[in-house]
Design a protein around this nucleic acid. Structure first.
Lengths: 101, 101
DNA sequence: CATATTAATCGCAAAATTACGATTAGTTTT
DNA sequence: AAAACTAATCGTAATTTTGCGATTAATATG
């Protein structure tokens, strides 16, 4: 990309909203979160069974959700247990609520 | 992309959330919406003055917000007046509220 | 009618996203 | 120690996004 103006300055609040929103910006990730919420937690393998997409793709989506802070992974060898990060979830809720009100 | 499984089926609700979220997934678009909200309406030219990015880039962001249904443009020749689409805005609010609760 | 103004669109380039299969790393189990 | 299992990472490819300058279309003004 030709970014002649690199380092555009944004309000922190705008960045926070954008980061959460971007993570929610794919239907698969939305449905992963719905599933996670309904099960309270789950393993990658569960998702591979539920969604008709490759294991590596699911792993990638999980990574993005994790990077955005919406989920956390807990080591339960040999599996990894993913749960919604309730603290950030609440933060996102407040941000969207405030923004969209 | 190698999409061996094309036509993945999603819940309509997940698609709706993802479409709104994707539109909100860039800080510039979030700030455009904030500005629109604060001014209730505005012209493209106002945004060009406010944001340090090219006119064509702003136009593109406006297009995406419009495609997602978050804003609407009204012809006020020779300008175009952009306002938040309150109906869809409310729809988005309800979707996120329900989803993040 | 010619000129100015406004904002969309075009064409391009760089970067990010999405998806896959294959491989790898880390644990268990045998 | 060998085999099995789980999930991340790698490498690749197609597509989409982001951004710019230049051009265009549409309207308004002189």
């Amino acid at each position: 990309m030709k970014r002649t103006i690199e380092n555009i300055e944004y309000e922190q609040n705008s960045i926070d909203i954008a980061v959460f929103a971007k993570a929610l910006g794919h239907p698969t990730r939305v449905e992963i979160l719905k599933y996670l919420d309904s099960q309270s937690c789950c393993f990658t393998g569960d998702l591979v069974d539920v969604f008709p997409i490759a294991q590596s793709t699911i792993s990638q989506h999980l990574k993005e959700l994790k990077n955005a802070g919406l989920i956390q992974g807990e080591l339960k060898p040999p599996k990894i247990r993913y749960c919604i990060d309730r603290e950030n979830w609440e933060k996102a809720r407040l941000l969207f609520d405030e923004f969209l009100k």
